[in-house]
Design a protein around this nucleic acid. Sequence first.
DNA 1: AACACTGTTTCGGCTACTGAAACCAAAAGG
DNA 2: CCTTTTGGTTTCAGTAGCCGAAACAGTGTT
Lengths: 262, 262
Amino acid sequence: MVEAIEEKNKKNASYVISSVDRAAHMLLVLAESPDSGVTELAEATQNTKSLTFRLLHTLERRGLVRKDPERRTYTLGYRALLLGDQSRRQSRLISTADPILAELSQITRENALLLVREDQKAICIAIHESPEPLRIFAAVGRLGPLHAGGGPKVLLAHAPEEVQQSVISGALEAFTEDSISDGDALMETLDQIKADGHVVSVGELDPNIFSVAAPVRDHTGAVIAALAVNGPTARLAEGTLDNVRSAVLTSATKLSQMLGGQ
Amino acid sequence: MVEAIEEKNKKNASYVISSVDRAAHMLLVLAESPDSGVTELAEATQNTKSLTFRLLHTLERRGLVRKDPERRTYTLGYRALLLGDQSRRQSRLISTADPILAELSQITRENALLLVREDQKAICIAIHESPEPLRIFAAVGRLGPLHAGGGPKVLLAHAPEEVQQSVISGALEAFTEDSISDGDALMETLDQIKADGHVVSVGELDPNIFSVAAPVRDHTGAVIAALAVNGPTARLAEGTLDNVRSAVLTSATKLSQMLGGQ
DNA sequence: AACACTGTTTCGGCTACTGAAACCAAAAGG
DNA sequence: CCTTTTGGTTTCAGTAGCCGAAACAGTGTT
């Protein structure tokens, strides 16, 4: 499997321009660890200090990175706001999902999320947060595994077979006791998800979090996203689960229709 | 002489990695013109097709760019959401201003904006939109001139002298009939703004838009941002202007206090 | 005052970036 | 249905400019 990855890398590597790749990587690292210095970032990205300094300098000129002149420390720049905002605006999926997520989070009083698959990762592309003071923290744009959690498993269940195989044959990290770390068990779950049209996942990524998710389809019927609700298991009483489940399902079909309609 | 040349070299080319710079530029261009093809972007960025293709390919691998496989067209990727979101979260200025902007837009029923200066440009870093159906479109993260509009002029008025000189001696583009395109007149206005502690600007960037702005100061008393309200001039009745003005002023001082407090 | 630490600058070698041009695939047009 | 055009992908060789190493310069610390 390492071979496969290397093969793939080699195949694509010809068109990757490495300094740009490193710059992109550094931006993403900086997003996760703000207020870092040159040395710190150099270590985090495995680059030399010189290169790190030059990358930061270059990105700063474009406003994507901001330097605190006193503390000698770097943060994402304001120009990055444009990228995030425009990315959101440019996505038809996000804009049509937005009101549905708002409604869903209001009905269930929990976080409502929209996720898509990117290669072998899940990425959350929109959130409406629970109105309750106790709620799960979730950030837009962050990558997560495909084999754990409600939304991710829905995405994996409807992913092309080669992706499923690749994920299953990889290391299935166990985040909690209830994580699925066995390939066969995972495959069964995926079949179940396809049969049920939704999934309820409890404590897979974090012991105190549950999530209910259902697939979102485009006009061809292909699954392009997962709609999910997550919240603290403490709030998961008997009756509420059914309510959440049906709310998620109706929201997902409604969103699918809106996407297919036009 | 020699110094000047050295200075110029230092500022222009010294530590900039050109491929990274071009990549950053391309991302920003892509943000403004989504769904573009390789050729189109190559023209827009003045790069060759090959380079454009390779840049896009590289950025795509990092999720910052997304390719529509059917239409052969590129858009910002979902990973850009992370950059925008984290940039917002990481800014103390934005997070403290947010509730104030919300309140201000609710009181005035117009857009409430927060702007900062970046080099010789103004950039809007936060917006709360008017609840009215008719409202000014404004995007976060976009750059604008310093010499036209309420917020920008406040920023320019409190900018270091070299910035003022540089802006004034440059080409003062006239966007409307009411734009200030004369250097001396602009300088007078700036003095007036500093004396008044706020500014009312009507029809400078667009004939149908007014704006009221006031400076935001940090704990040292330095002006670090401008708080502004803008809306359609059609809604600018006699009495309302005073209300808007006082709302902006109280909001700006409140924000300054909150920033200075800690 | 010496030290430790991080950010900045220099410099030569040589990688890997670059532009030009060929090559394809798909759409437009006749 | 063939031709033309347009736009995306791939190849290739030359050398621009990237890169790491190491010296240097600030800043805070013991």
